[in-house]
Amino acid sequence: MSPAPLLEATRLTKHFALRRGLLGRRTDIVRAVDSISFTIEAGQTLGLVGESGCGKTTTSRMILRVEPPTSGDIRFEGAPLAALDREGLRHYRRSVQAVFQDPYASLDPRMRVAAIVGEPLVIGQRPTGTELRRRVRELLDLVGLPERAGRLFPHEFSGGQRQRIAIARALALSPKLVVLDEPVSALDVSIRAQILNLLHDLQRRLGISYLFIAHDLAAVAHMSHTIAVMYLGRIVEMGAAAEVALRPKHPYTQALFSAALPLDPGGRSEEIILSGEIPSPLTPPPGCRFHTRCSHVMDRCRRDEPPLHTESGRLVACHLYPQGEGMRTTASR
């Protein structure tokens, strides 16, 4: 048996209560994330894809402990987060860092870059001045910025360089997992490859794991070892990145990847265009949540929610693929 994964989420659920109606007496429940399970292995990348409202950002916020889960459980290096004491949580928070989409919003414009990158260190360990300067220099070097960058302010940098600063800050405490929430979508096209290459290189050198969230499916497929596809709070398909991207099984995954337009002016033929809109997570459709837009919809789909089960080496939640006997699992291990 392999060692415990770095992070393991089991039946992770987040419901938000919305107060509505007169005097907020009626409460509606948004099932932002509904009982999803996945693992992130050490040194690997889990790509999370899906459209707005599918719950991918809520998932990352639960991992970052910005949102407490409504139910379900996250284990980090085998230990359940719910059971961690103060010291355990401090360790967890140091081990899990994040890089966000917009490096114009995520860096304090009044702090010099060295202070931005060194801030987590100062809060964490109170190093001496020399130690701090050495570590900041090391971090800037790691992300390909010159030492003098530390003396400048964020506005003196372009978008791509700012994202490098944000990455250096995320790496300051030598985390084991970095949540990357749309890390390149605010950047110029010509810069994206630089940053993706940098992230890939850092993973190889430092052995960190990534939770990679993006709507650019080709970038996710490029960066990830495993891809999980979410729709309205549920994982509908999960498996090895190349398999999910190139041979998607779930009709939603198929439509999603067909909408990720290829760079080929000739390859316009096999496009699947879904009808209808994404339903509100406030009132997800009964049965399979995708049935209102699915071209393969059957009676059963309107009634029974298909469980996530193994189908040719990956997990799919769809009635098109009947479960084989004894293969029924909801988690990958």
């Binding site: 096209v189 010509s190 080709a218 970038a219 490029h222 190139l246 990847f257 990720a260 760079l263």
Partner: peptide
């Protein structure tokens, strides 16, 4: 050329 080459491609 560089723009076309820098974009990740499915597959």
């Amino acid at each position: 050329r560089a723009l076309l080459e820098s974009v990740p491609r499915l597959g």
